[in-house]
């Protein structure tokens, strides 16, 4: 191809003829090309890690500021599916590593089998991810403002009054109880030290001149939480869902146990939706990488079946393998961060 092409492989090349078809004209030899490819891949992987690194920092800052949201939110994730996915991904990483080893030995049939298995792993991961996402979407455990759109989405749970127990529901929500709650709150507030007698008490916090203000009152924070971005209709739906606040488990025989949607849970921490926001962001970005990985593996499989690789040229398989491992490693961090702790 060029005068500089002094590839020692030329002499005993059994797959190619005059020159190596994979070799660019600007390389001196395929070793140089391979090393450059590998260096490029590692650089790319470092950018991937930094990309996820940003999200991990966001996770860390968020969790440090609001640990209760994460403790509360993680109970909505199913460790079984998460664990299964971890196993699937680890196995697929193993088959990918085997594919690289076999290609170094030139056993291209075994490479193809391993790639198919890896592809199954990628597909399996996405199927399980689909099951999990589908479940979350069905239950209304959605990121951001969509979290507030279907407060009644938890279909396994019914409000008491819909089960024909209106009286019970009414009792549960009696004004007495609400008053008691407020009285307790007032009690708490009155325990704060009294203001100096000579000072005029300034009850307004400076921020309260804003649209909703930021006060310590949980109720106010909840309202500001909603007001921040929700359309008025939805705010009305949530705010007027008073009778929905108390739920009873639907004990029909074939119903599984489900957790109530956080909006139906008066004990939920403020901004519980943030857990699902970052969950969907991080696993979603990871899912995109799995899909890209699947496409890459498919491409590698096609090239393998066409006989493009041999023991002295399998750079794409090697680099594809590196990429697939990094996808795996990121999941290894995501799984405990969301499901376990």
């Amino acid at each position: 191809m060029s005068q500089l092409d002094i590839n020692p492989a030329h002499g005993h090349d059994h797959d190619h003829h005059d020159h190596l078809p994979h070799q660019g004209h600007h390389w001196r030899d395929s070793k140089q090309q391979f090393e450059a490819g590998k260096l490029g891949m590692w650089l790319f992987l470092s950018t991937e890690i930094l990309l996820f690194g940003g999200l991990f920092v966001a996770y860390a800052v968020w969790r440090a500021n609001h640990p209760e949201i994460f403790e509360y939110g993680s109970q909505f994730l199913d460790t079984f599916w998460g664990g299964l996915n971890t196993c699937v991904l680890l196995l697929s990483s193993m088959t990918m590593a085997m594919a690289v080893t076999y290609s170094a030995r030139g056993q291209m049939k075994a490479v193809a089998i391993c790639l198919v298995l890896t592809l199954f792993g990628a597909g399996g991961f996405m199927v399980i991810k689909y099951i999990e996402y589908n479940h979350k979407i069905h239950e209304g455990l959605l990121p951001g403002m969509y979290f507030y759109e279907k407060p009644e989405a938890s279909y396994m749970w019914l409000p008491l009054d819909e089960q024909g127990r209106e009286a019970e529901a009414a009792a549960a929500l009696s004004a007495e109880e609400q008053s008691a709650a407020f009285a307790a709150q007032v009690q708490l507030e009155s325990e704060m030290p009294p203001a100096p007698a000579n000072a005029e008490i300034w009850t307004k916090s400076p921020a309260a001149t804003g649209p909703e203000g930021f006060t310590d009152s949980k109720l106010k924070v909840e309202t500001s939480e909603l007001r921040a971005f929700l359309p008025d209709s939805v705010i009305g739906k949530v705010e007027n869902s008073g009778p929905l606040l108390k739920f009873a488990e639907d004990t029909s025989p074939n119903k599984e146990l489900h957790l109530a949607h956080p909006l139906q849970d008066p004990e939920r921490p403020v901004n519980a939706q943030k857990f699902f926001s970052i969950y969907f962001m991080m696993t979603g970005l990871h899912g995109i990488h799995v899909i890209v990985g699947g496409i890459v593996i498919t491409w590698l499989l096609i090239l393998t079946l066409r006989g493009r690789f041999s023991y002295d040229y399998y750079t794409p398989i090697d680099l594809g393998g590196l990429y697939w491992h990094i996808v795996d490693v990121i999941w290894i961090f995501l799984f405990p961060l969301f499901y376990l702790i």
Binding site: A58, H66, G144, M145, F214, A228, F229, Q273, K274
Partner: peptide, 12 residues
């Protein structure tokens, strides 16, 4: 787009 609130003080 979604109002996730990572940079929004109103959402903590």
């Amino acid at each position: 787009a979604f109002g996730i609130g990572i940079f929004n003080p109103a959402l903590g």
